[in-house]
Structures are given as structure tokens and as C-alpha cells.
């Protein structure tokens, strides 16, 4: 029972992957289901990535909202780069700042670091324990708390619901 959630998520994940690659022929579907269940039964004890994910309606809604916010931020960051690059004076004010995260799960931290890299003007350089060191192209905050609020909070509140 301990491994059930991990086993279930891994099977679903493998099956969706198979579906995307192989298409929706009936024979291929049956083989896909069988092989997904077989592989996840063999590997379930060694895979800890899925332990942190919560299965609930709230987590699902938060995932959708998170993907939407992430896409908007990605597009915003591209226009931000475009503005800075095309501006004749090259308006940058760079620096490496330190921010704190409340997330405990590994997968959540990876996703947070990736999201930070793809949002306007920030690039994750190093992770040490609870702190991220972030190269910020336009430093506007003085201390840790303020920069944490500006960079991390908009993603963290959703990731906290998804990963706990």
C-alpha cells in the first residue's frame, strides 16, 4: 500500500508517454497498458520521484493554473529580453541575489528552479540547502525577504499545494 501511489502515477505516466508516441490503435493500447504496469511493478521500489505529488482536485486545479501562469511568464520574459536588447542604452542592472524557498520536495525544487530560469530577468546559478542564488538582470530589491517575494512567491504558492 505504501508504494501504491507511486506505482499508480508511474503507470499512468508511462502509458501517456506510450500513447503520445504510438497513437491509438487497439492492439497497441493493450500492449501499452500491459507493459506500463509491468515496468512500474518492477521499478516502483527504486523510484522516489513521485512520492511528493499529491493526488487531489485542488492539486489538479493548481497544476492547470500553474501551467497558465508559467506560459504567461515565459512570453513576458521574451518581450523583456527583446526590450532590453533593442534599447539603445542597454538598460541592465545585474547582480546575484539570494532567495529562500519553503519547498521541501526535490521534484518541486527542480521545477521551481526551472521556472525561475524562464521568468523575466532571472537565472538560477546555484542551490545550497534552502537558498537559491539567482542572477538577476535588473536588481530592484535590497534584502533576501524582498527578493524572495518578488521572484519566488508567485510560483511557490502553487507548487506548495501540488507537492506539499
Amino acid at each position: 500500500m505504501k508504494y501504491f501511489k507511486s506505482w499508480f502515477l508511474l503507470s499512468i505516466f508511462l502509458f501517456i508517454f506510450w500513447l503520445l508516441l504510438a497513437g491509438t490503435d487497439l492492439q497497441e493500447l493493450i500492449v501499452g497498458i500491459a507493459v506500463s504496469i509491468l515496468i512500474s511493478s518492477i521499478l516502483v521500489k527504486n523510484i522516489s520521484v513521485f512520492d511528493d505529488i499529491k493526488i487531489s482536485l485542488k492539486a489538479f486545479i493548481c497544476t492547470i493554473v500553474y501551467i497558465c501562469i508559467f506560459m504567461v511568464e515565459l512570453i513576458k520574459s521574451n518581450f523583456d529580453v527583446a526590450f532590453r536588447v533593442l534599447h539603445p542604452k542597454l538598460p541592465i542592472n545585474p547582480g546575484i541575489v539570494k532567495v529562500r524557498t519553503e519547498l521541501k520536495s526535490k521534484l518541486g525544487r527542480i521545477i521551481l528552479a526551472n521556472s525561475i530560469t524562464l521568468t523575466p530577468g532571472t537565472l538560477t546559478v546555484e542551490i545550497q540547502e534552502d537558498y537559491y542564488y539567482i542572477h538577476w538582470i535588473d536588481v530592484t530589491a535590497e534584502d533576501i525577504d524582498r527578493s524572495t517575494e518578488l521572484i519566488v512567491k508567485k510560483f511557490e504558492k502553487y507548487l506548495e499545494v501540488i507537492f506539499g
Binding site: N78, D80, V81, A82, V85, I92, P94, T117, L118
Partner: peptide, 11 residues
């Protein structure tokens, strides 16, 4: 390097 990487990754 770091500012170049910012421009490169996002775009």
C-alpha cells in the same frame, strides 16, 4: 556570460 545566458535561454 551571465547576461548573455539570460538572453540565450529565454529566447
Amino acid at each position: 556570460v551571465y547576461n548573455r545566458m539570460q538572453a540565450g535561454t529565454k529566447t
